[in-house]
Simulated scan of single mutants.
Amino acid sequence: MREFIVADINVESITESYAEIDAYSQGRLPGKKGGFSARNMGKNDLWIAATGAVLKVVILTTDSDFDHLDGQYIRLKKIDVNSYR
């Protein structure tokens, strides 16, 4: 974690990715259905996923909110916080 990427989310590619991931998550993206129950992602999680998708970075998380996007839009690495206790 020596370097952090600061990304401006006010760019067209990230905004378009946000809209596509939101539609996909809700099961409303024509021609692209996932094998999961439709869900409404939180706005912040959508921005994180869209930014990660465009920048092609691995998203680190401790929860399962991004699981349905792994391999489809993002690369995901889950961290088990219990292993650090």
Rank of each mutant, 00 (worst) to 15 (best):
A38L: 11
A49M: 01
P30T: 13
D8V: 01
L76V: 01
L76Y: 02
G31V: 05
V57K: 09
N82Y: 05
I5A: 14
M1L: 11
M41K: 01
K33S: 11
S17K: 15
G42W: 02
G42C: 06
H68A: 11
K77M: 14
I5D: 10
V58I: 14
H68S: 09
V6P: 00
G71L: 04
I5Y: 09
D63N: 14
T51E: 03
F4T: 10
N10K: 11
R75M: 02
D8Y: 00
R39C: 07
L69W: 06
A19K: 09
D63E: 12
D45C: 09
W47N: 14
F66G: 06
A50Q: 07
Y84N: 03
N40M: 07
N82P: 02
M41N: 03
V81I: 15
A19C: 06
S25W: 10
L29W: 12
R2S: 12
S17M: 15
K56Y: 07
T15R: 13
V11R: 09
F66D: 04
A53M: 08
L29V: 00
I79E: 01
D70H: 08
D8N: 04
D22N: 15
I79K: 04
G31R: 07
M41I: 02
F36C: 05
V57W: 00
I59S: 05
L76G: 05
N82F: 02
K32Q: 13
I5W: 11
I9A: 01
G35T: 03
G42E: 01
N82R: 13
K33V: 04
